[in-house]
Amino acid sequence: MAKVKGAVVVDQECCKGCNLCVVACPEDVLALHKEVNSKGYHYSHMVNPENCIGCMNCGQVCPDSCITVYRVKVPVAKD
């Protein structure tokens, strides 16, 4: 049995803070940042990176193509 771990990289300057990725995430990984980028948008970022499963939902609903998703399989040792 392998566990899937993922990570999301958001292009902070490209993000317009539309919140669609936050709603699409099934694991509550993403949220809008308190800070703003140079255009004044609250960009999306990972608040719970340990929950990410790399399902790509956030990337697929992103209108500005600013999300890149990475995923690895982590083997879990049986005790």
Partner: peptide, 10 residues
């Protein structure tokens, strides 16, 4: 995790 070989969507 964030390595080119692990990229699944971009």
């Amino acid at each position: 995790i964030i390595k080119p070989e692990n990229k699944v969507y971009g």
